[in-house]
Design a protein around this nucleic acid. Structure first.
Lengths: 152, 152
DNA sequence: AATAATTATAGATTTTTATTCTATTTTTGA
DNA sequence: TCAAAAATAGAATAAAAATCTATAATTATT
């Protein structure tokens, strides 16, 4: 799907706030309500917009202890990798997990309440997964930026 | 603010999909429309829910080349740190930036189109920031999980 | 370049949902 | 135990989404 300038502006607005009225986006983009309505439907239909979600203040729900956990596997057989990834998907504390090149195999973003809970997570959940060679935890001292949006 | 079980379930639902009707959440939680409506307003008012956003398919908008970039600063004076963070905030390609403990000072999540664009980003934007000592780029081979939501 | 076909847009209408209101129930605290 | 406060349900109203019809703009075709 080709995005024109109006589409890009619209996606930008929807990534900032998806709960405005069609009329508000329309006024902002100098289009009619129907035009914006149809454009949004098209963005949804073609899969550019995948879903709409509420964002939560991690501090308010006591999950603002964030750790970037670097993991090396012992063995890199297909079965081991798939099992590892399947197990990671089950862990609610892990909001992001990337298989990466470089010094480590995986980088995880983990959000828990405090160090005690992180230790618990490590001991009872993470290292319970077979085939983990070593881990290196980088504790977040400060969140400079943390947004799910993508510039377009 | 204290969250009861209904609140937690509601936040979970809203983090998955914030565009359902009040009635749908009400049916799911076995509450009336008004009860759910008031609970949502309270979650917003107390700052548990910060905002509502559209999520975009990075592949569809050609920003699915993801890199976790580890940065060491040369000097850690207050001014240097603040200037570095101020400059990072300006870079649209950086969706996340954490000041961390451990081997590196900062970990960034960068989303661009391809390696060529990443190189451009590094050369013209990132290393243009003063005070960067060294960088280590971990290229995402596969996104196992990538969600902005928090378990509660 | 002219015209047909397609697509996008605007404005009006209808339908659905959010919001407000009032009464009732439940919970909390003295 | 009772009064006050908070939460809930259901009804009424207001607002927005969704649809429809007509028009304008764009694209493709000859």
């Amino acid at each position: 799907m080709e995005l024109d300038e109006k589409d890009r502006q619209l996606v930008k607005l929807l990534q900032e706030d998806c709960k405005k009225t069609t009329k508000e986006y329309a006024d902002n983009l100098q289009l009619s309500k129907t035009a914006v309505y149809e454009r949004i439907r098209r963005l949804e239909r073609t899969g550019v917009i995948t879903n709409y979600v509420a964002l939560v203040d991690k501090e308010k729900v006591e999950r603002d202890f964030t750790v970037l956990c670097h993991i090396k596997l012992v063995q890199h057989t297909k079965e081991n990798v798939l099992r590892f990834e399947r197990e990671i998907l089950k862990l609610a504390e892990v909001s992001e997990c990337f298989h990466v090149s470089g010094d480590y195999d995986y980088i995880l973003k983990v959000s828990v309440k405090n160090m005690k809970n992180y230790r618990e997570f490590m001991v009872t959940k993470l290292t319970a997964i077979n085939n983990i060679g070593s881990t290196q935890s980088s504790f977040s001292i400060r969140e400079v930026k943390n947004s799910p949006s993508v510039y377009i």
